[in-house]
């Protein structure tokens, strides 16, 4: 009784329902790249208009977003680390995983390019150059999808960057934006998703140096959080979101988002796996 009053009081105190908020909504844990690139600002209003379901996006790194899902604090997840997503499904926290869209990662670095990697087509070779020159490299270091991709690329290049830790290899444990800010300030290289890079304003001397290698593919997947594990989740609404974003309307909305005429995300929904 007391608790209910307390809870209602807190909701009122916070004016928990601003005018724009929906009666029906889901909480979507996702990545900074999808929000900060402006994609959600473009596609979510269309979803809400079509279905009457609001989407509250909590933008985190993929690792954190999956943890939010593991605690049952989100209804659906849209993230980009396939191995981690499959682990999440295997643990019984949700799924099935549906692939939604992709874009790509790019290697960013100072225009002066002390490692001499500009224009390379082989990302492994570029990373080996950076390591060989001990050129400053900023790593997310935050278990995000981009961090996972970066570590995979180092491994495929046959390099253990952790040996340069504290010297040329700098793990900052923060999001994509702060990583770009840090690289700009330190004239360092880093791996970024293309969307955040295109939307990023504080570039200073940073330039896009390497792109187009097939290994730079950045695949996004969507998952519903398991109602068996977490009885509080909104199964129906979450499923409606997944059906929409992997369906014709959602895929078209994704394809329609552009910055300066450049398409940022490429829809490639496929049946569950």
């Amino acid at each position: 009784m007391v608790r209910r009053h307390l809870r209602r009081g807190l909701l009122l105190a916070g004016f928990a329902l601003p005018a724009a908020a929906q009666e029906r909504f889901i909480t979507l844990a996702s990545t900074t790249s999808t929000e900060q690139s402006g994609l959600f600002g473009h596609i979510l209003p269309i979803f809400t208009r079509d279905t009457g379901i609001g989407v509250r996006v909590v933008a985190l790194g993929t690792g954190q977003a999956l943890d939010v899902g593991r605690r049952g604090d989100a209804d659906a997840l849209l993230v980009h680390d396939r191995a981690a997503e499959e682990r999440f499904v295997a643990e019984g926290h949700g799924g099935p995983r549906r692939q939604v869209m992709y874009n790509d990662f790019v290697l960013i670095g100072p225009a002066a390019d002390p490692a001499g990697i500009a224009g390379m087509r082989d990302v492994g070779e570029a990373l080996r150059q950076i390591a060989a020159r001990r050129a400053p490299f900023v790593s997310r270091g935050d278990r995000s999808g981009t961090h996972a991709a970066e570590l995979r690329l180092w491994q495929e290049a046959g390099i253990d960057p952790v040996r340069g830790r504290g010297q040329w290899y700098r793990e900052i444990g923060q999001g994509m934006g702060p990583a770009l800010n840090t690289a700009a300030a330190q004239e360092a290289y880093l791996l970024s998703d293309r969307g955040t890079w295109l939307a990023f304003r504080n570039r200073q001397a940073l330039k896009l140096l390497v792109e187009g290698d097939a290994r730079l593919l950045n695949q996004y997947g969507v998952l519903a959080v398991s109602p068996q594990r977490h009885p509080g989740v909104k199964v129906k609404e979450a499923q409606a979101f997944i059906d929409w974003i992997t369906g014709a309307a959602g895929q078209a909305a994704i394809a329609g988002y552009r910055i300066n005429g450049e398409q940022l995300f490429f829809p490639n929904a496929a049946p569950p796996n």
Partner: peptide, 21 residues
């Protein structure tokens, strides 16, 4: 306030109420 936490059934996480607390 997490749904897995002791007050999860309040449903306050990720709301203004949680920020007030």
């Amino acid at each position: 306030l997490s749904r897995s936490g002791p007050l999860g059934h309040w449903g306050l996480l990720f709301t203004p109420g949680a920020m007030v607390i």
